[in-house]
């Protein structure tokens, strides 16, 4: 293995050795690729809602509105992060069957999965999930509906700001709307491997 490493490095050195002036790292402002006005919104939650709807995501202002929607769609079986359930479980009625342990041998029995959002991105309408605060990667992915529970103060204005705050978590994922494909004749289909419905709810 170290032989391969040495071979590759010696070839790289050989290839770069004739270059006298190597291209410098260009200076640029952090917001160079930020959409005009993305950071200027006074209310980041409203800005986020507009953006997430553009990518076919749903956003609810409170848990009661979410519960109404779930009931209307007859999504009554699901999973919820146990810590979150202590906070929001009271808003769900007896007609719901919500488990607090995600059983990977039964992934198709969960209609929805509720987990913590570690943040959100107003510029793109993305929710941010981190390993440290996501109770189960599978529970946020396998059910048809994923619900991310967000606090208002966790919203970043833009991509550059969210990159600056990646932190030291080993796994951070931004989810921008439901899972989708256009592989078959360019026709958009939602819900390929991940959720067909991506919901963010403020709580």
């Amino acid at each position: 293995m170290s032989e391969s490493r040495e071979a590759i490095f010696s070839r790289i050195r050989g290839a770069l050795q004739p270059l006298h002036d190597r291209a410098p790292y260009p200076e640029y402002p952090d917001n160079v690729a930020t959409l005009a006005g993305a950071g200027a919104a006074a209310d980041l939650w409203t800005a986020f809602k507009v953006r997430t709807q553009l990518v076919n995501g749903l956003a609810f202002d409170n848990v009661a509105a979410l519960v109404d929607w779930l009931r209307e769609k007859k999504h009554l079986r699901g999973y919820c992060d146990p810590a979150l359930w202590a906070e929001i479980g009271g808003s769900f009625g007896d007609d719901f069957h919500v488990e607090r342990v995600f059983d990977r041998s039964q992934i198709d029995t969960y209609q929805f999965g509720i987990t913590h959002a570690a943040g959100a991105l107003a510029e793109t309408g993305s929710v941010i999930l981190k390993d440290a605060t996501t109770a189960s990667r599978l529970a946020a992915l396998a059910p048809w509906v994923h619900i991310a529970v967000l606090k208002r103060e966790q919203i970043f204005p833009d991509v550059a700001a969210a990159v600056r705050s990646l932190g030291s978590d080993p796994n951070v994922i931004w989810c921008t709307g439901p899972s989708k494909t256009a592989d078959v004749e360019g026709i958009l289909i939602q819900g390929v491997h991940g959720p067909g419905v991506q919901i963010t709810v403020l709580a």
Partner: peptide, 9 residues
């Protein structure tokens, strides 16, 4: 797209 659906770090 502005971003792809999943961007994983």
């Amino acid at each position: 797209q502005q971003l792809t659906v999943y961007t994983e770090f």
